[in-house]
Amino acid sequence: MSALLEVSGISKSFDGFKAINNLSFSINAVELRAVIGPNGAGKTTFMDIVTGKTTPDDGEVRFGENGRSLLKMNEAQIARAGIGRKFQRPTVFEDQTVADNLTMALKADRNPFAVLGWRPSRKSQARVLALADEVGLSAQLTRRAGELSHGQKQWLEIGMLLASAPRLLLVDEPAAGMTLAEREQTTTLLCKLAETRAVVVVEHDMDFVRRLNCKVTVLHQGSVLAEGSLDHVTRNPNVIDVYLGR
């Protein structure tokens, strides 16, 4: 199976500090992957490079069957190409309802005249209902986003990303601040999403990673230190020394 995302030998330095050091990483079109590592391992910079926020000093990042270079695209172009990123803190429109948030996220013509004359269609309304159902918010459609729990806001933001039909989702520490029940529902959601697309979850919570039951990539000092099942990488002496033993 050919990779959906292929990161080859990327490096990035900030004021002499090498945040990413000859990093190579790939993920298939339908796969769930967890990325773990100590603070400063390069996890955020890796996501910044994939989404176009940061340009590497060396290396290449290719996406899709035709291997398009993401380094020649800006953030908006990369998002339109099919890469969605969810940051750790949910960013939703708190004064708007859940339905309104999902509606605003739908793929649509952004021409100013088209936006001014836009009215919800049956198709768009059906899509909003489907998205709400997919992320477990069907019963919350008329509630203001600001009234939702932390976990529900996280699911709403994932729903907003799904509205643009991404082929790759980058999700940053989704379990942080959630109740046990929300964490369990989030695990189920991410596993379900990975049945039809690539999902990369950056996480510190090892119990949450274990629940995901997927391949794990361990980063350290901007490089891949180990890769495999969670049991495999947690038995690796190097991983124990630099991450688990701390």
Rank of each mutant, 00 (worst) to 15 (best):
Q96N: 12
L189I: 09
A145W: 06
R143E: 11
M160P: 04
I27C: 05
V216E: 00
T186I: 12
E157D: 02
S13K: 06
V92S: 05
S11D: 13
S138R: 14
S69R: 06
N21C: 15
F87I: 05
G9H: 15
L148Y: 05
A19G: 08
L244D: 00
V224H: 02
V35K: 01
G117I: 08
G67L: 08
R80S: 13
K12L: 11
S8G: 09
L225V: 02
R210I: 12
V216C: 01
D207T: 12
S149M: 09
S229E: 05
G245D: 05
L170S: 00
V216F: 00
L193P: 01
T44H: 06
R127E: 07
P38R: 00
K192S: 14
D109M: 10
A108R: 11
A175G: 02
R235F: 06
M1L: 10
N101V: 04
R127N: 10
K72N: 15
L141S: 07
T44A: 02
V242Y: 08
Q185E: 14
N66T: 11
L4I: 05
V92I: 06
S223D: 13
V239L: 04
N111A: 14
G245Y: 02
P120G: 07
Q125R: 10
C214R: 08
S121K: 12
K107M: 15
R197V: 09
F25I: 03
K86E: 05
G146K: 05
Q154D: 10
T179Q: 10
A181T: 12
T142C: 11
R33W: 04
R62F: 12
F46G: 00
C214W: 01
L116F: 05
D15L: 15
R89K: 15
E195C: 11
V50Q: 01
L212W: 04
F93L: 09
Q140T: 12
D172T: 01
R119P: 06
V233P: 03
S13Y: 08
T142N: 15
A79T: 10
A130F: 09
A19C: 07
F208L: 04
Q88I: 08
K43Y: 00
H220A: 06
Q140W: 14
N236Y: 02
V135Y: 02
A76M: 14
P120Q: 08
R119Q: 11
S149A: 10
G67A: 11
A19W: 02
N39P: 05
V7F: 02
M178S: 09
P38E: 13
E94I: 13
S11I: 08
N39S: 15
K18F: 08
R210A: 11
Y243L: 03
Q125Y: 09
G9N: 15
V202S: 00
I20A: 04
C191E: 15
L32K: 01
N238T: 14
R167W: 03
T103H: 09
E184L: 15
